[in-house]
Amino acid sequence: MSRIGVAFDKARADGRAVLVGCMPAGFPTVEGSIAAMKAMVEAGVDVIEVEIPYSDPVMDGPVIQRASDLALAGGVRTADTLRIIEAVAATGAQVVTMTYWNPIEQYGVDAFARDLAAAGGTGLITPDLIPEEAGEWLAASDAYGLDRTFLVSPSSTDARLKMTVEHCRGFVYATALMGVTGARSQTSAAAPILVSRLREVTDLPVGVGLGVGTGAQAGTVAGYADGVIVGSALIRCLLDAQDQATGLAALRALSAELAEGVRNPAR
């Protein structure tokens, strides 16, 4: 059973893709991030991806790095992330957590799984944890009924794709580009190929991330994927804004544009 599967089932019934919007916990503040995530939900984002800020985020580009640094400088703790997840899940939106592995290991893998489940989180996306190293997380996620999203990449061999999806529950995250997070002017040509390779080995929904920043791009990705994952472009709305109100307005506008995009898949 998958917690996040509900969102994908609903979108599939509507003939569209799920929109996943990412925001670091505690950016710009704990309360500010809750407000931003709620605004995204109201504007049509289906799933909120709450990223736990980490001091050494090797998979992230400059925008998420900067937002994470600001959140950490503001003193956000792992326990605050759980509070944020609880507040956003209370709106009825699905919440998935993205985290580098060390914060979870230090919190305690089983303890984090227990508290995440209690907060209403659906599961984890783990950018620097591959299934071979995930023994403790596999056990804890089974124990608390949480979803597990591992990443696959265009460079993954067929054997690794198969092995990785066998360890996923909920959805699989296809990194569309060879590179770090950040909006690009064009979405990747490698992404549809990777998604079709995944279809050969799994029935799990496939989310595609890295590089999407506009409604049109969201529509393109929605044409072949089950989920469109957007991070940097949304975060930039807040980073670039003069004040919170302006930032939230820009965030709502982009969320709405992306939500429209996933409802108009390019086929």
């Binding site: 592995w101 950018p127 591959i130 190293e133 990449s153 993954s156 690794r160």
Partner: peptide, 18 residues
């Protein structure tokens, strides 16, 4: 798999595994 007892291993993005 590169483990020195409980240490070592690979904690990397899948993109680097190949």
């Amino acid at each position: 798999a590169g483990h020195f007892g409980r240490f070592g291993g690979r904690f990397v993005p899948e993109a680097l595994v190949a």
